[in-house]
């Protein structure tokens, strides 16, 4: 069991992705080289967010694929009034619905085969187990609605401000705050239900 190394408590600053207008313009025209470059520049950011949102690496890869395959057709909607990263993460969050269902089904399938045993958090090893803690949080996230989950991941895990999270989710800032508040309460209750104290 690995020893937990917890990073200091601070809100992370989301790394920004610099994408210039000529590159976007070429990618919009379907230029394969420009699309490839755009993928190189943004894939890490998209992949991280997809993993955090879905809690499943394989489903996250599918979501990354889904987003980038449809990106040439979606670039026409980007007007340039917000950072490209916000636009891209907005696309990810909108296309995540189906992949989230798949990820949740997959977790249930694993449970069916008794692969993951989430109800064993009382051992001392567990206290220091990082992976198990993350796994429990992912399972607790499954109890949230899709909107609450998105708001929580954007605000708490990604470290966006309420205004940035609102921009990505396409809802008012106050809605994000309310959703995060309710999400936190539900998650605490869910972690309690799983026997974590």
């Amino acid at each position: 069991m690995p020893i937990a190394v917890i990073t200091p408590l601070r809100r992370p600053v989301p790394s920004s992705v610099a994408v210039d207008a000529p590159l976007l313009s070429r990618a919009r025209g379907g230029n394969a080289v420009a699309l490839g470059r755009l993928y190189e520049l943004t894939q890490h950011r998209v992949r991280c967010f997809a993993r955090r949102l879905l809690g499943d690496d394989a489903a996250a890869e599918d979501l990354v694929q889904d987003v980038f395959v449809h990106l040439p057709g979606l670039l026409g909607r980007y007007r340039g009034d917000a950072p490209f990263e916000m636009f891209l993460l907005g696309v990810v969050s909108r296309r995540a619905r189906r992949h989230l269902r798949t990820a949740m089904r997959r977790r249930k399938l694993h449970d069916r085969f008794a692969l993951c045993d989430p109800a064993s958090p009382s051992t001392p090893e567990w206290e220091s187990g990082r992976h198990e803690l993350a796994d429990l949080l992912v399972r607790a996230l499954d109890s949230l609605s899709r909107e609450q989950r998105l708001a929580f991941v954007l605000r708490e895990v990604e470290g966006f401000t309420a205004s940035e999270a609102a921009q990505v989710a396409g809802v008012p800032e106050a809605t994000i705050r309310t959703r995060v508040f309710h999400a936190r309460r539900k998650l605490q209750a869910e972690l309690g239900r799983l026997g974590v104290s």
């Binding site: 937990a4 917890i6 990073t7 408590l9 992370p12 955090r52 809690g55 990082r130 992976h131 803690l133 993350a134 429990l136 949080l137 992912v138 708490e156 895990v157 936190r184 998650l187 605490q188 972690l191």
Partner: peptide, 9 residues
């Protein structure tokens, strides 16, 4: 919860 969030991140 905060710890779990940091680990997931």
């Amino acid at each position: 919860l905060d710890r779990a969030v940091r680990v997931l991140r």
